[in-house]
């Protein structure tokens, strides 16, 4: 029958579960919020939040593909935002963004270097850098915010970097789509992607075929740091200001988005589309709780509950698909 026919599709595409959950949530949220959730302005906001979280999520997905994990991305996001804001006041925003991306790439390089050179588990290494760079972000701002005066929030490069809209969509969404296409092509169509997934699937086997496992993992960390910083730049461009807590706890959302999206934490199997759908689901839930004026103290609890429910739903769907 028809249901049995879709089983193989569900089996092959780990992201089907999260896509169904996203559709379900959109319908429920739209019907139950009397237009407060499903309006152009709110959807635009959700997409902007999805874009900055999504860029971070794409990077984390690459590291997960290689069989490692990067939980320092929340701090990298914050550093990217601060470097961008500090420099955007002094030089062209495009240059400021380049510097911020370089900073993010360097943080990724530190993570990658420590993981591949010392063999320390990436969870520990990036937990360390998560704290280090959060500390640096707080120290740099010393309790204040870096911000760009309203009158300076103009110019083509400022607006292209999250500080403006095109066709009613924040420009960060364009960056997200661009990166999704580029990374998707690198992952599926280029030797780099083949090796990245091989390393995550079995690093010993990849090594035995002459893959330079350390270099591949290192590159994943550098991409991850750079993408997190890009997210930070775009968020900073949108808000025009940032303090030392910028991006806090976002690393957890990014990892949750990856797992919900069908990325295997053990490595070797990821879905970029799935991970982004995961990021969209998380941003949608957040926005729903805000527009429904859920008291902030319940916010985290509800978010967590919905994430667990979504994960369980996805899991039972996959198990159903595996049954004959």
């Amino acid at each position: 029958m028809a249901l049995a026919a879709i089983k193989p599709i569900v089996r092959r595409h780990a992201e089907i579960g999260i896509v169904l959950i996203a559709v379900l949530l959109v319908v429920v949220f739209a019907l139950s919020s009397e237009g407060r959730w499903a309006n152009a302005y709110n959807i635009g906001t959700i997409l902007q939040v999805t874009a900055t979280l999504g860029l971070m999520t794409l990077g984390v997905a690459l590291v997960i593909a290689s069989g490692e994990i990067d939980i320092s991305v929340g701090s990298t996001f914050g550093i990217g935002a601060l470097v961008y804001l500090w420099l955007a006041l002094r030089v062209d925003p495009a240059l400021a963004a380049l510097a911020a991306l370089t900073a993010g790439g360097l943080i990724g390089a530190v993570n990658g270097w420590l993981v591949t050179r010392t063999g320390t588990p990436s969870l520990i290494v990036t937990l360390g850098t998560l704290m280090i760079f959060r500390g640096i972000a707080i120290a740099l701002t010393s309790g204040f915010a870096f911000s760009i005066p309203y009158k300076d929030r103009t110019g083509i490069s400022y607006r292209l970097l999250g500080g403006g809209e095109i066709l009613g969509l924040n420009t960060s969404v364009i960056w997200l789509v661009l990166m999704l296409v580029v990374l998707g092509a690198m992952l599926r169509l280029m030797p780099w992607g083949n090796r990245l997934l091989a390393v995550g699937g079995s690093s010993d086997s990849a090594l035995s075929r002459g893959v330079r496992v350390d270099r591949v993992k290192f590159s994943a960390f550098v991409f991850c740091g750079t993408l997190a910083a890009l997210g930070g730049v775009l968020e900073a461009g949108k808000l025009g200001s940032a303090d030392g807590s910028m991006g806090r706890l976002m690393e957890l959302q990014a990892i949750a988005a990856c797992v919900l999206g069908g990325c295997l934490l053990a490595g070797g199997r990821i879905s970029l589309i799935g991970a982004l759908t995961g990021a969209f689901v998380l941003s949608s839930i957040q926005s729903y709780l805000v527009v429904m004026s859920v008291r902030p103290q319940w916010f985290m609890v509800l978010l967590g509950l919905i994430v667990v429910a979504a994960a369980l739903g996805d899991r039972s769907l996959r198990q159903w698909a595996l049954r004959r």
């Binding site: 083949n194 997934l197 699937g201 079995s202 086997s205 990849a206 035995s208 075929r209």
Partner: peptide, 21 residues
């Protein structure tokens, strides 16, 4: 190799050329 050499998560074609695509 005795115990390594193939990545379960990749197709036969991708495994074949792994490292020399």
């Amino acid at each position: 190799q005795q115990s390594v050499g193939l990545c379960d998560n990749l197709s036969i074609a991708r495994n074949f050329y792994l490292g020399r695509e």
